[in-house]
């Protein structure tokens, strides 16, 4: 299975370009009044995005779901440069790791001196299904403008023990319970078309020993 993704440049009049993600750095230049939207399901490769918000009111909205298993070791690199004032970036990243998988997430938001009234957000959550899996997040905010909003958040941990127990206490077996919780956790970033991939991955990777 290849990483599937869907990158889409949206202008005021609809889709400007629809590009598949490539290996290496994907440089995306977002012009004036344009929204760059990406929904990325990350299973078998690194991802590098360099997004330049160069026009007035250019925006990007990126949602990434990653699933890592076995001894896989992947990187997600995101660099957002708010070159123009009045630009907005939003990155929402959620993932699930099992076995000995490792993920490194580098997220950089740059706001040079003239990028007033910009907003940049990057949020990450990682769920670990195994004690040997890990995520390393290196956030970097490089802000030289003063009238901006910017934040970087990350939370990493196992599935919530009380939520899991609630499902078990209603007779639902541990594998099904974990799948229900994982699906619920990913659901806000997950377009329905990916259901099949997620179900397939969970069928192979969710086990009873947690």
């Amino acid at each position: 299975m290849k990483a599937i993704n869907n990158l889409c440049l949206m202008g005021m009049n609809g889709v400007l370009a629809d590009t598949p993600l490539k290996e290496g750095v994907n440089e995306i230049i977002v012009p004036e009044n344009t929204l760059f939207e990406a929904k990325i399901l990350h299973i078998f490769s690194d991802i590098s995005l360099k997004i330049l918000l160069v026009g007035d009111r250019s925006k990007c909205d990126v949602k990434i779901v990653y699933l890592c298993n076995k001894n896989n070791n992947y990187n997600i690199n995101i660099e957002v440069i708010h070159e123009h004032k009045n630009t907005l970036s939003n990155h929402q990243i959620k993932g699930v790791l099992t076995d000995n998988a490792k993920m490194v997430l580098n997220g950089v938001i740059r706001m040079p001196k003239d990028s007033q009234k910009c907003e940049g957000f990057l949020n990450h959550r990682g769920v670990l299904l195994s004690e040997n899996a890990s995520v390393k997040v290196t956030p970097e905010l490089e802000i030289f403008a003063d009238d901006v909003k910017c934040s970087h958040g990350s939370a990493i941990g196992a599935l919530d023990e009380n939520q899991l127990f609630y499902l078990l206490a209603r007779g639902i077996d541990k594998i099904t319970a974990q799948k229900i919780l994982l699906k619920a956790y990913l659901s806000d970033l997950l377009p329905d078309v990916w259901d099949e991939y997620i179900d397939d991955w969970m069928a192979k990777n969710v086990s009873t020993h947690v």
């Binding site: 919530d160 009380n162 939520q163 127990f165 609630y166 206490a169 919780l181 619920a184 659901s187």
Partner: peptide, 10 residues
Amino acid sequence: FQYPTELPGV
């Protein structure tokens, strides 16, 4: 439960 757990998304 005395304190029922919330399950967002379920």
